[in-house]
């Protein structure tokens, strides 16, 4: 059952194990399309692990087992026959904590995804690259130097390049794993502005340990916690960001948000 707008996730009783150790257990949540969902919680609470479930990047870490049901617009993403991870990842892009552009030109970085998925015509690629760079708010800075090596950009520009690179495959969802934590405050602000603009067209799930940032940019917030080292982490609650930050339903959320731990 696919409805418009697209880009929703439904998680039901999801757990993740590294080898024999269960890291995250029993997470159920709905991710609303074309909104920003922030995953917050102290470090080690499984935010990034849960994020990687959504594009099956845990598969690449080896020895990681994901259980439960994850539906992307109603489609079970754990079933390779329904949705190959390759197709899933084209539709669910990811931006990493540290900027990680490929060691090639700006243009080639952005064109990498479309080329991977079969776009060959030069004119078409040019258009996709321009559009992606515009959406990532980088176009004006680099439009005259697309052949420049990506490593010559500043850290903030590199991260926006990575956003553009992810946008170039026209994903419905963008996963962001602390995308601004390695950047200076001004670059960080630019990334936040970009996110605010992007949520009109894509669903964004962002992991952050910066609660002000979560409060500023997200529509909904999920709070995760690992209460003791011998128990797996879990979801404490998820809800409207304004409500979560002003009137949380759970004591533990309140303590975390008011800075009593974490």
């Amino acid at each position: 059952m696919v409805t418009n707008p697209t880009g929703s996730f439904d998680l039901e009783n999801v757990s993740v194990a590294y080898g024999s150790e269960t890291a995250v257990a029993g997470v159920s949540m709905h991710i609303v399309p074309q909104s920003v969902t922030a995953l917050i919680g102290p470090s080690g609470c499984g935010k990034s692990t849960l994020l990687r479930c959504l594009n099956r990047m845990n598969d690449e870490l080896g020895n990681v087992k994901v259980e439960g049901s994850i539906r992307f617009d109603g489609l079970d993403i754990m079933d390779n026959r329904l949705l190959d991870p390759v197709d899933l990842r084209r539709r669910v892009g990811q931006v990493f904590q540290k900027p990680n552009p490929f060691p090639m030109s700006i243009y080639d970085n952005v064109a990498y995804g479309p080329k991977t998925h079969g776009t060959r015509a030069k004119a078409e690629l040019d258009a996709v690259v321009e559009q992606a760079l515009k959406r990532a708010a980088l176009w004006n800075e680099v439009k005259d130097q697309l052949k420049k090596h990506a490593f010559e950009l500043s850290g903030g520009q590199q991260q926006r390049l990575c956003i553009a690179r992810a946008l170039a495959t026209m994903p419905e969802v963008l996963l962001m794993d602390e995308p601004a934590s390695a950047l200076d405050p001004i670059s960080s602000q630019q990334i936040e502005d970009t996110i605010a603009e992007l949520k009109k067209s894509v669903t964004i799930v962002i992991v952050t340990h910066n609660m002000q940032q979560a409060a500023r940019i997200s529509d909904r917030t999920a709070f995760m916690l690992r209460e003791s080292m011998d128990r797996p982490a879990g979801l404490i609650e998820i809800g409207d960001t304004r409500v979560m930050f002003t009137n949380p339903g759970d004591k533990r959320t309140e303590s975390y948000i008011t800075g009593r731990f974490g």
Binding site: T6, V128, Q131, R135, M170, E172, K200, S201, V202
Partner: peptide, 8 residues
């Protein structure tokens, strides 16, 4: 801004 999704 044009909506790129679902078209190409």
């Amino acid at each position: 801004m044009s909506e790129p999704r679902n078209t190409t």
